[in-house]
Every structure is written in structure tokens, then in C-alpha cells.
Amino acid sequence: MALIRITSPHVHKPVNTAGIMRLVILATLPGLLAMTFFFGWGTLINIIWASLLAVTFEAICIKARNRPLYFYLKDYSAILTAVLIALALPPFVPWWLTAVAVFVAIVVAKQLYGGIGQNPFNPAMVAYALVLISFPLEMTRWTAPFMLQGDGWNILGFVDTLQLIFGGWSEHADAFTSATPLDVMRHRGGLTTEEAWRASDVLANVGAWHAVSAAYFMGGILLLYKKIFSWHTPAAVLISLGAMSTLFYVISPDTYADPFFHLTVGGTILGAFFIATDPVSSATSNKGKIWFGIGIGVLIFTIRTWGNYPDAVAFSILLMNLAAPFIDQYTQPRTYGHKAPNSGLKGKA
């Protein structure tokens, strides 16, 4: 009888990494739908294009590193990274910008560090930050939620969008470009928030952004329900950002945007649920995740309000990625039967 010899446990929960990644990708669907509904085909085209590039770059790297190709490709992690990059980029960025971003994410930020599980920074955010700094013009070409205007689908159809992305920028498209609400709020000159709200037609259309955030929120709740991540990080991000903005809004409503604006505009919800929760680059313990999230929330508000960039989710997450190993040292949970948690590098032996 050929019996195998294996140590316990002998049963395994039917979960795997690929399944988790697929579920996260699935959870971005409401957000994608909302983006497409308000901003046209651009995001969808970018997702497909970025995914193709991501798989290609991943495959090349895995081959170059002499690893089993299929074994690593099938974990869907590259595609998830591509999806997150495409969702974060403005809908009509040129094709080469997406390619640069995906290259940086997959090759530089992930594979050069040793592949899946080894990257200290979130690859999508490294890529986003890099293209944001390198190509500020292209990265600010957001559009107004033009789909809301009459026969939106005819204004910029699927083919037009393809031409715009792969053919090059046309004068025709300039008609649709617009600043984001965060841009408007940041660069409103001497206006008070009240005046800005009245003066800007971008802010008048802020409802589209709220709707997109709501869609991402739904996806995030699905993942929470499925226990893909714990509530600690997103809750800490949102609560700290909310508290921070409420505090300043109460002090001076004319100078600072209201908390609802901060929470629902820009990348806050996408970042809190889909990017800050990236387990590889975040803190480990529940306690650590709370500190990690608080750091992100505070940094988002700080950079948005006093920094040079209108949105700050990518920078905040990268900065906290940097702090995660440190947070881990001081946030061990209290083990069963111990009076207090250990902390620090070694502590009492």
C-alpha cells in the first residue's frame, strides 16, 4: 500500500490567492461601470490595454527569473495591478503613458523586488506617482462628466475614444477636458469655498464623482463581507480623514473643504478599500492596520490642503508603505496567556 506521509493539517480551505485576486477585480466592477457611465469608454479601454501589458511584462520577468510561468501568471496579481492603475489614471491618457505606468508597476516595483509578496510598495501607486510627476500635462487631462450632457454616447463614441488614446490628442477632445473638483478646490485663488462652489461648473457636476465613489464603496463592502480584508484599514483611513477635515472645516469653513467633499471626491474611496488594503505592503496586525490607515487619512488631508498636488492618495499610501515595517514592530497583538503584547525589535527575552 503506497500511503503518503504528510504532517497535519490534512485538510485545506478551498481558497487560493488567484481566487482572492479575482474577487478583488470583480469588486472593482461597480466602480468601472460608474466611471464608464460618467466619463466614457476611456477607462474600460485603459483597463484592457493595461492588463495586456501587465501580463506581457509579468511573463517576460518570470521567464527571465527562471520561474514556472503558468504557476505565477495564474495568480491574477498582475491583472489586478493593471486594473487599479487604469482606474486611477484619467480616462483619456495616451497609450504610452499607460504602458510606462504598467512597466514601472510590474517590472520595477514588483518583479525587481522579488515578485509577488516581496514588494515593499504598492506597485500601482508607485506607477501612478511616477507618471503623475513625470507627465503632469497628460495626467491632468480629466474630462467633465460629459455623458450627463444630452446625447453623451454620441459625443465621444468607442471608436473616437480609441483614436484619442492610440491616435493622439485632437483639438476635438479639448472640448471635453476639465479640471477635477479637487483641482478646482486647490487652485481656487482667493475665493472662499462658498464662492468656489458657486463659481465653478466643475463643482456643479460633483455628483458624478460622488456616484463613482459610491460604486467603489459597494465593491469594498463586498470584499469586507467576503473577509478578503478586515475593516481596520479602510475604517481608519476614512475616519481619520473625516475627523481631520471636520476639525478644520469647523474652525474655518471658508478656507477648508467640508468632510463629505474630502471623503467622496478624488481617490479616497478607491484608495481606502482597494489600495491601502493591499496586504503585501501594509501593516500586519489589526492594531498596525489601524495606525497605518490613520497615517494615510491624515496625510491625504495634509497634502490636499497644504501640498502642491490636488490629490494625495498615492503619495499618502506610499509614505505609509514606507512606515509599515516600523509599525509592525510596535503593534504585535497580545498573545493568549500573555499579560501584554511584546513590542520593539526584541524586548525582554
Binding site: 487560493n16 490567492t17 509577488i116 516581496q118 496586504p279 501594509s282 489589526n286 497583538p333 498573545t335 493568549y336
Partner: peptide
């Protein structure tokens, strides 16, 4: 075959001894 650890933390949520 074991894949790379992605630090998902599911083990931490399952540990009855409250370890990491």
C-alpha cells in the same frame, strides 16, 4: 505547491493563540 505569501493576514484572523 506553496505560492508566495502575500501577507493577506487570513492566518492572523484564524489564529486561536492570537499570534502573527
Amino acid at each position: 505547491p506553496a505560492q508566495a505569501c502575500i501577507r493577506c493576514g487570513l492566518c492572523e484572523q484564524a489564529c486561536p493563540a492570537e499570534l502573527l
